Amino acid sequence: MAIRTYAALLRGINVGGHKKVPMADLRALLEGLGHGGVRTYLQSGNAVFTADHGDEESLAAEARAAIAERFGFAVDVLVRDSAYLRAVRDACPFPAAELQPKQLHVTYFSAPVGPDRFTAVDQPAFLPEEFRLGDRVLYLYAPDGLGRSKLGEQLSRPALTKGVIATTRNWNTVTQLVEMTHG
Protein backbone atom coordinates (compact mmCIF):
# COMPACT_ATOMS: atom_id res chain seq x y z
CA MET A 1 0.00 0.00 0.00
CA ALA A 2 1.21 3.50 -0.78
CA ILE A 3 2.04 5.95 1.98
CA ARG A 4 -0.84 8.36 2.60
CA THR A 5 -1.17 11.40 4.81
CA TYR A 6 -3.94 11.66 7.38
CA ALA A 7 -5.19 13.91 10.16
CA ALA A 8 -6.45 12.48 13.43
CA LEU A 9 -9.12 14.60 15.11
CA LEU A 10 -9.52 13.79 18.80
CA ARG A 11 -12.76 14.84 20.47
CA GLY A 12 -12.99 16.44 23.89
CA ILE A 13 -9.40 16.31 25.13
CA ASN A 14 -7.56 18.97 27.14
CA VAL A 15 -10.78 20.85 27.88
CA GLY A 16 -11.20 22.23 31.38
CA GLY A 17 -8.48 20.02 32.78
CA HIS A 18 -10.24 16.81 31.73
CA LYS A 19 -8.89 14.03 29.54
CA LYS A 20 -5.38 15.47 29.44
CA VAL A 21 -3.37 14.27 26.47
CA PRO A 22 -0.07 16.14 26.11
CA MET A 23 0.74 16.64 22.44
CA ALA A 24 4.28 15.25 22.87
CA ASP A 25 2.73 12.06 24.26
CA LEU A 26 0.22 11.91 21.39
CA ARG A 27 3.05 12.26 18.87
CA ALA A 28 4.99 9.46 20.58
CA LEU A 29 1.88 7.27 20.69
CA LEU A 30 1.24 7.69 16.95
CA GLU A 31 4.91 7.07 16.16
CA GLY A 32 4.70 3.94 18.31
CA LEU A 33 1.89 2.73 16.05
CA GLY A 34 4.32 2.89 13.14
CA HIS A 35 3.20 6.20 11.67
CA GLY A 36 5.66 8.65 10.20
CA GLY A 37 5.88 12.41 9.90
CA VAL A 38 3.82 12.90 13.04
CA ARG A 39 3.03 16.52 13.89
CA THR A 40 0.40 18.07 16.12
CA TYR A 41 -1.48 21.34 15.87
CA LEU A 42 -2.60 23.21 18.98
CA GLN A 43 -3.48 21.41 22.21
CA SER A 44 -6.98 20.41 21.15
CA GLY A 45 -6.23 17.05 19.58
CA ASN A 46 -5.17 17.53 15.99
CA ALA A 47 -2.40 15.31 14.65
CA VAL A 48 -1.07 14.75 11.16
CA PHE A 49 0.76 11.56 10.21
CA THR A 50 1.61 9.24 7.35
CA ALA A 51 0.68 5.58 7.21
CA ASP A 52 1.34 2.76 4.78
CA HIS A 53 -1.42 0.51 6.13
CA GLY A 54 -5.08 0.69 7.02
CA ASP A 55 -7.89 3.06 6.13
CA GLU A 56 -9.58 5.91 7.99
CA GLU A 57 -11.74 3.63 10.13
CA SER A 58 -9.05 1.12 11.08
CA LEU A 59 -6.53 3.89 11.81
CA ALA A 60 -9.07 5.66 14.04
CA ALA A 61 -9.85 2.41 15.89
CA GLU A 62 -6.14 1.74 16.36
CA ALA A 63 -5.58 5.25 17.76
CA ARG A 64 -8.63 5.00 20.08
CA ALA A 65 -7.40 1.70 21.51
CA ALA A 66 -3.84 2.99 21.99
CA ILE A 67 -5.08 6.19 23.70
CA ALA A 68 -7.33 4.20 26.05
CA GLU A 69 -4.43 1.89 26.94
CA ARG A 70 -1.88 4.70 27.39
CA PHE A 71 -4.04 7.32 29.14
CA GLY A 72 -6.72 5.18 30.79
CA PHE A 73 -9.77 6.85 29.27
CA ALA A 74 -11.75 6.64 26.05
CA VAL A 75 -11.42 9.34 23.41
CA ASP A 76 -13.39 9.55 20.19
CA VAL A 77 -11.06 9.79 17.20
CA LEU A 78 -11.82 10.54 13.57
CA VAL A 79 -9.15 10.01 10.93
CA ARG A 80 -9.48 11.71 7.56
CA ASP A 81 -7.11 11.63 4.60
CA SER A 82 -5.58 14.68 2.98
CA ALA A 83 -7.82 14.56 -0.12
CA TYR A 84 -10.96 14.56 2.02
CA LEU A 85 -9.73 17.47 4.16
CA ARG A 86 -9.02 19.52 1.03
CA ALA A 87 -12.42 18.64 -0.44
CA VAL A 88 -14.15 19.81 2.75
CA ARG A 89 -12.28 23.10 2.65
CA ASP A 90 -12.96 23.61 -1.05
CA ALA A 91 -16.68 22.77 -0.75
CA CYS A 92 -17.40 25.36 1.93
CA PRO A 93 -20.79 26.90 1.08
CA PHE A 94 -19.94 30.15 2.88
CA PRO A 95 -17.57 32.88 1.63
CA ALA A 96 -14.67 31.82 3.87
CA ALA A 97 -12.25 34.36 2.40
CA GLU A 98 -14.60 37.19 3.38
CA LEU A 99 -15.20 35.99 6.94
CA GLN A 100 -13.18 36.04 10.13
CA PRO A 101 -12.00 32.51 10.91
CA LYS A 102 -13.85 32.58 14.28
CA GLN A 103 -17.12 32.97 12.37
CA LEU A 104 -16.84 29.70 10.47
CA HIS A 105 -16.71 26.18 11.91
CA VAL A 106 -16.81 22.66 10.55
CA THR A 107 -18.21 19.69 12.45
CA TYR A 108 -16.78 16.43 11.16
CA PHE A 109 -18.99 13.35 11.50
CA SER A 110 -17.95 9.70 11.62
CA ALA A 111 -20.67 8.79 9.08
CA PRO A 112 -22.92 10.59 6.62
CA VAL A 113 -25.78 12.54 8.18
CA GLY A 114 -28.85 13.55 6.21
CA PRO A 115 -30.98 16.67 6.40
CA ASP A 116 -33.78 14.69 8.09
CA ARG A 117 -31.68 14.65 11.27
CA PHE A 118 -32.00 18.45 11.45
CA THR A 119 -35.65 19.00 10.50
CA ALA A 120 -36.53 20.01 14.08
CA VAL A 121 -34.05 22.92 13.91
CA ASP A 122 -35.94 26.09 12.99
CA GLN A 123 -33.15 27.65 10.93
CA PRO A 124 -34.85 31.03 10.29
CA ALA A 125 -35.15 31.54 14.07
CA PHE A 126 -31.34 31.59 14.34
CA LEU A 127 -30.53 33.99 11.49
CA PRO A 128 -28.05 35.42 10.71
CA GLU A 129 -26.45 32.17 11.91
CA GLU A 130 -26.71 29.38 9.37
CA PHE A 131 -25.57 25.82 8.76
CA ARG A 132 -25.20 23.65 5.69
CA LEU A 133 -24.43 19.97 5.33
CA GLY A 134 -21.62 18.51 3.25
CA ASP A 135 -19.90 15.16 2.89
CA ARG A 136 -19.81 13.89 6.51
CA VAL A 137 -19.57 17.50 7.70
CA LEU A 138 -21.67 20.39 8.85
CA TYR A 139 -20.56 23.94 8.08
CA LEU A 140 -21.64 26.55 10.64
CA TYR A 141 -21.59 30.29 10.08
CA ALA A 142 -21.74 32.02 13.47
CA PRO A 143 -21.06 35.78 13.07
CA ASP A 144 -20.40 36.29 16.81
CA GLY A 145 -18.28 33.14 17.18
CA LEU A 146 -19.08 29.65 18.40
CA GLY A 147 -19.03 30.59 22.09
CA ARG A 148 -22.03 32.89 21.60
CA SER A 149 -23.79 30.83 18.96
CA LYS A 150 -27.33 29.79 19.84
CA LEU A 151 -27.49 27.70 16.66
CA GLY A 152 -24.20 25.99 17.55
CA GLU A 153 -25.63 25.15 20.96
CA GLN A 154 -28.76 23.70 19.32
CA LEU A 155 -26.73 21.67 16.81
CA SER A 156 -24.59 20.10 19.54
CA ARG A 157 -27.56 18.56 21.34
CA PRO A 158 -27.16 14.79 21.78
CA ALA A 159 -30.33 14.01 19.83
CA LEU A 160 -28.81 15.54 16.71
CA THR A 161 -25.49 13.72 17.00
CA LYS A 162 -26.88 10.38 18.18
CA GLY A 163 -25.10 7.42 16.64
CA VAL A 164 -22.17 9.37 15.19
CA ILE A 165 -18.96 10.84 16.47
CA ALA A 166 -18.99 14.60 15.94
CA THR A 167 -16.08 16.96 16.52
CA THR A 168 -15.88 20.63 15.59
CA ARG A 169 -12.96 22.72 14.38
CA ASN A 170 -12.75 26.44 13.61
CA TRP A 171 -11.84 27.57 10.12
CA ASN A 172 -8.21 28.32 11.06
CA THR A 173 -7.79 24.70 12.11
CA VAL A 174 -9.61 23.39 9.03
CA THR A 175 -7.27 25.28 6.71
CA GLN A 176 -4.15 24.52 8.77
CA LEU A 177 -4.86 20.79 8.65
CA VAL A 178 -5.19 21.00 4.86
CA GLU A 179 -1.82 22.75 4.68
CA MET A 180 -0.19 20.26 7.05
CA THR A 181 -1.48 17.22 5.16
CA HIS A 182 -0.48 18.61 1.77
CA GLY A 183 2.87 20.03 2.91
Rank of each mutant, 00 (worst) to 15 (best):
F126A: 06
F126Q: 01
A2E: 13
V174E: 08
T107L: 10
I3P: 03
N172G: 02
L59F: 05
A74W: 00
A47G: 07
G36I: 01
T5L: 02
L59N: 06
Y108D: 01
T107H: 05
V48R: 11
K20T: 14
N46W: 00
K162A: 15
N172M: 07
E179D: 13
P101F: 14
D25P: 00
V121I: 15
P101S: 11
C92F: 13
G145R: 07
S110Y: 02
V137S: 10
L140V: 12
H182Q: 15
Y41I: 12
P22D: 03
D122C: 00
Y41C: 05
Y139E: 01
L30T: 10
R136K: 14
R132P: 11
G54I: 05
D52I: 03
G36E: 15
K102W: 03
L59M: 06
T181K: 02
L10N: 04
F131C: 09
S149C: 00
F49V: 03
H18T: 05
A83H: 07
K162C: 07
E130H: 08
F49M: 07
N170M: 07
I67R: 01
D81N: 15
L177P: 07
A2D: 12
H35C: 13
Y141C: 05
V15D: 04
M1E: 04
D144A: 15
T107D: 04
E56M: 04
